[in-house]
């Protein structure tokens, strides 16, 4: 789903057209879910965050300001919902948001991720999820993770090569 399409849907939701929510949900639930899964490390919590995110969009869509960054706005809502959830669970969060989330995230639940990601290490998996499932650019990922751009590019390419090899081997094993 493009930023343009997201933008149009959010503006419609903001204008009171709630039917757009179903379209937005179908088109963007997977990226939001995996974004939330990254933050929480737990499928059940990720699902809760995802649902809370879409409900918040429905309730507060009028606060959306069209600036060409619709996806970023949705991810911010999701991040805030994850923060809310951690707070409700009694975690005090005195650090910056990114650090806070790192600090309180549940342990990684490997089964929650697509099976092919198991061939990647944690860093590679995170980059691939952000890039392929959530649609972030590699530059945005570098900024988000506070990593040098070159390292992100290298890790991403390395990860994709591994996945390609894995898919090929899997295909051959089914012949």
């Amino acid at each position: 789903m493009t930023n343009r399409e997201l933008d149009a849907l959010l503006r419609r939701i903001g204008g009171g057209d709630k039917s757009a929510l179903a379209v937005l949900y179908e088109g963007f639930r997977m990226p939001v879910y995996y974004y939330a899964l990254r933050l929480t490390g737990n499928p059940q919590k990720a699902e809760d965050v995802m649902q809370e995110t879409f409900l918040a969009i429905l309730r507060n869509g009028r606060n959306y300001r069209s600036d060409g960054k619709a996806a970023a706005w949705i991810y911010t809502v999701a991040r805030n919902k994850a923060m809310d959830m951690f707070r409700k669970e009694g975690n005090e969060l005195p650090l910056s948001q990114a650090e806070e989330l790192e600090a309180v995230s549940s342990p990684f639940d490997g089964d929650a991720y697509p099976g092919m990601l198991s061939v990647l290490n944690e860093k590679e998996r995170d980059i691939v999820i952000l890039r392929v499932l959530c649609g972030f650019t590699l530059t945005e990922i570098a900024r988000d993770k506070e990593m040098p751009k070159g390292s992100v590019f290298w890790s991403y390419n390395n990860a994709m090569k591994k996945l390609k090899k894995h898919l090929k081997e899997e295909g051959e094993s089914h012949v």
């Binding site: 639930r29 997977m30 995996y34 929650a112 991720y113 697509p114 092919m116 392929v132 499932l133």
Partner: peptide
């Protein structure tokens, strides 16, 4: 990857 991810969403 997206196919698998969608199945797990």
């Amino acid at each position: 990857l997206r196919r698998q991810a969608l199945q797990k969403t």
